[in-house]
């Protein structure tokens, strides 16, 4: 029996899940390199959405023309976060302090603090209101996919996710900087002895991760049309959950877990009031951790 309403809810869930996945990829990448969590990542996502809004309203650009602006904003935010919340804690270069628990927890808190400051600053600038992308700029054309109605924006989310995922694998496996990122995440001390510039690799990681996060903010704002300064908070928490369920260091794991969360939320919305669906990700998280205390997809050697 094929129920197009059910299928539609699940498909929407999957596309929402892909946005969690996009944000989670940047998160996971940074975690792999530094063993540190960047809690300010959600604000990069929000900035991406606001950059899109500015591009299509103030600059009157067509939606696609927002891409370069969003990339620049994401890049600047990523480099800024690294400089302000992470670099100061890498004063020492030996392995004991670079990945130590103290530095990990200090950067977790400093990025959390920076995230709060950034979110509140945006709240001041945009007065905490929900702002809307103009209808004619939104990607809201309906698309009929074998009886399941989706919007062009939801398809764009899926498309962009696939492109970025493939692009990221290419970057990691086929380029010099990708090799260096993998080398640093595999053995930081070994990377230093091999002449790899750690700071440069960390910056590159933040740049890549943050550009992904900002692009996610862009496509979500174009698909759903509304933007608010705290929109990144919910998403970053879910992305964090996705990273953890996915096993912390596995990028495919984070993607699968992100989609899983989205679909579970879509499925839950069929049975319970929508207010309760907020809980789904966390219930999923806690059950996963009870049975798999280190997540579902642990990379070998990690």
């Amino acid at each position: 029996m094929f129920d197009s309403f059910v299928a539609g809810q699940l498909a929407i869930g999957a596309s929402v899940g892909l946005t969690y996945a996009l944000v989670a990829i940047g998160f996971t990448l940074i975690y792999r390199v530094l063993s540190a969590v960047n809690f300010a990542h959600g604000e990069v996502y929000t900035l991406g959405a606001f950059a899109t809004l500015v591009a299509v309203t103030t600059l009157k650009a067509p939606p696609l023309a927002a891409v370069p602006l969003v990339i620049v904003v994401g890049l600047a935010a990523g480099l800024g976060i690294e400089r302000v919340a992470f670099r100061p804690f890498r004063r020492f270069t030996d392995e004991a302090s670079l990945k130590s628990r103290a530095v990990r927890e200090a950067t977790l808190l400093s990025s959390l603090a920076l995230g709060i400051v950034g979110r509140e600053a945006m709240d001041q600038v945009w007065h905490g209101q929900w702002l809307a992308i103009p209808q004619d700029k939104m990607l809201n054309q309906p698309v009929n996919l074998g009886g399941v109605m989706l919007s062009a924006g939801e398809l764009a989310i899926a498309g962009l996710s696939l492109v970025l995922l493939v692009g990221l694998q290419w970057l990691l496996l086929r380029t010099r900087v990708g090799l260096e990122i993998r080398a640093v995440s595999s053995n930081l001390v070994g990377a230093q002895f091999s002449g790899i510039d750690i700071n440069r690799v960390v910056l590159a990681t933040f740049a890549v991760g943050s550009i992904l996060g900002a692009l996610a903010g862009m496509v979500v704002s174009l698909a759903y049309g509304s933007i608010q300064s705290s929109m990144g908070l919910t998403v970053v928490l879910k992305a964090f959950v996705a990273m953890v369920i996915g096993g912390l260091t596995s990028i495919p794991g984070a993607v699968v877990a992100g989609v899983l969360i989205g679909v579970a939320e879509g499925a839950a919305s069929l049975w319970v009031a929508s207010a309760w669906t907020e809980m789904v990700a966390y219930v999923l998280l806690i059950f996963t951790l009870i049975f798999f205390p280190r997540g579902l997809f642990r990379r070998r050697g990690a």
Partner: peptide, 10 residues
Amino acid sequence: PEGRQLFADL
């Protein structure tokens, strides 16, 4: 270096 410090998963 001491302990070799290779990239074990590469």
